[in-house]
Simulated scan of single mutants.
Amino acid sequence: MVADLSPFSPAHCPRLVVKVGSSLLVNEEGAIKRNWLVTLVEDIATAHRAGQQIAIVSSGAIALGARRLKLPKGGRACLEDAQAAAATGQIALSQIWADLLAAHGVIAAQILVTLDDLEDRRRYLNASATLDRLMGLKVIPVINENDSVATAEIRFGDNDRLAARVAQAAGAQGVILLSDVDGLYTDNPGRNPDAQLIERVDKVDAAIMAMADGGTASGMGSGGMTSKLEAARIANAAGSTLAIVSGLHENPLSRFITTGRGTVFVPEKAARARKAWLAGRLSVKGTVQIDSGAAKALADGKSLLPAGATGVSGTFQRGDVINVLGADGTVIARGLAEYDSAESALIAGKRSDALAEVLGYAPRSALIHRDHLVIL
């Protein structure tokens, strides 16, 4: 069966995010694969002329900068080397994109973000407005993580998930992850020759996640199949269709249109904007574990009541984002806490009529209200 490409056509996908991995852009010597990149830009320019608004999430700054600075281990020997390589490589990377797009009469813009820029609600809305204005002006934004200042605490860690978050912020209907793999397989094809490519995924559940391999084929990038599946989950929660496609060929986008080879992740339905933002968050302050009865209530659209909680972990304040774990420890929902962690621990498992006595004041009825909760 050939994958359904209609979600990615300009007619069905007015806005598209294309992510390009490091191993596709930069060779083992740390130089840009310019001949290949020219063919990708041809594909992007063709879609742009057809009326599609496109944003590019481009890796490669660290690998490119490490070569220029002659740093060991591709610039990843230590955080300081990675930051210096990113600062040096990013200016060169942006210039290459700008020059190649300009050859087709297209203006490029650069946007660098850290995790906090899309996790903080106000900054997320600012980024969304900037993307919307640029793309409305027919400018192609070239986006990367700001690795020159990012640390472990404020990093996306891979551009797969960044691409999904950018799609969410831009209101894009589609995301294409160009990578050194051509999709999701039933097993690692490098180890199992009988592994089969999965062409369509309707829900990223535990069975799909179990097929992931955390490594990368090239060893150059930071994302593996696990990060791509997490990206698919984020994109689908916002109503965006995501595809994992091989970039190991010239004109990879037009090749995908011709052959349909890849894995397409189809959303069930789009969440409201605020809930999609919650679903896509990568950092949380704590967790609440619940019993099976509470899990069913959440699935039915109810709020999370203290009686259904069986445990609380982490340190969080009222209004912080927390995960909800099912009885087996799997994350099943995410929302904004109505109580801080200390209060949540005190009232976990308590009936609503006992809360005032435990807390010493008239309580709120829910640990997480349904209006501030999203099922994952």
Results as ranks from 00 to 15, higher is better:
residue 1 M to V: 10
residue 3 A to C: 13
residue 4 D to G: 08
residue 6 S to D: 08
residue 9 S to P: 01
residue 12 H to G: 00
residue 13 C to Q: 02
residue 20 V to K: 00
residue 25 L to D: 00
residue 31 A to V: 12
residue 34 R to Y: 10
residue 44 I to V: 10
residue 49 R to M: 07
residue 51 G to V: 06
residue 73 K to I: 08
residue 76 R to Q: 14
residue 84 A to T: 06
residue 85 A to H: 03
residue 89 G to E: 09
residue 91 I to H: 00
residue 91 I to P: 00
residue 91 I to A: 03
residue 103 A to F: 04
residue 106 V to P: 00
residue 106 V to C: 01
residue 128 S to A: 13
residue 137 L to G: 12
residue 145 E to W: 04
residue 154 I to Q: 10
residue 155 R to V: 04
residue 161 R to A: 11
residue 165 R to F: 03
residue 167 A to N: 01
residue 177 L to Q: 03
residue 188 N to K: 10
residue 192 N to I: 12
residue 192 N to R: 09
residue 208 I to Y: 11
residue 227 S to I: 06
residue 230 E to K: 15
residue 237 A to H: 13
residue 239 G to I: 00
residue 241 T to H: 05
residue 244 I to C: 06
residue 246 S to H: 05
residue 249 H to A: 12
residue 253 L to R: 05
residue 263 T to L: 06
residue 265 F to E: 00
residue 266 V to K: 04
residue 272 R to A: 15
residue 274 R to T: 13
residue 274 R to L: 09
residue 279 A to S: 12
residue 280 G to Q: 01
residue 293 G to A: 14
residue 294 A to S: 15
residue 298 L to C: 02
residue 302 K to W: 14
residue 314 G to R: 11
residue 324 V to A: 05
residue 331 V to E: 13
residue 338 E to G: 11
residue 349 G to I: 03
residue 356 A to W: 14
residue 371 D to G: 03
residue 371 D to R: 03
residue 374 V to Y: 00
